[in-house]
Amino acid sequence: MKISVQAEPFDYGTLSNAFAQGHTHVGAVVTFCGIVRDDELGGLSTMEIEHYPGMTEKAINAHSQIAKNRFSLAEVLVIHRYGSLKPGEMIMMVATAAPHRNDAFQGAEFLMDYLKSRAPFWKKEIVNGEPRWVDAKPEDEDALSRW
């Protein structure tokens, strides 16, 4: 398992490629990346991501371990950024490797659902110069019930 909580950008292509190399019992790799999206027709200038150092790593580690056991994952990678990001920048990535593709897909979805509402990150958008905290969505909480 590799987990990184960082301010710096990451190279999705290089990391995905490295993640998919060097396995002989893995038949499937799934990678996902989340990107800062402007829903405000150009009004979103910045997304600021705050987190709880220490708890963030602990929560991601715990959920990655659960995912690894539950979906028989051979390997897990989670990177999540914090700090000030612009629209189009990558916020986070998840990669899973498993013998079979269904487990790799499900493991990645499970991790995404848990990162959304159980990892201590908070997003603040600056829209047309006005800061506002992003509210958690009920459907993100509901998404956990399927696991």
Binding site: M55, A136, E141
Partner: peptide, 10 residues
């Protein structure tokens, strides 16, 4: 003890 709003990661 930490207090915070519902989390919005991902």
């Amino acid at each position: 003890v930490a207090f915070f709003p519902p989390m919005t990661g991902g």
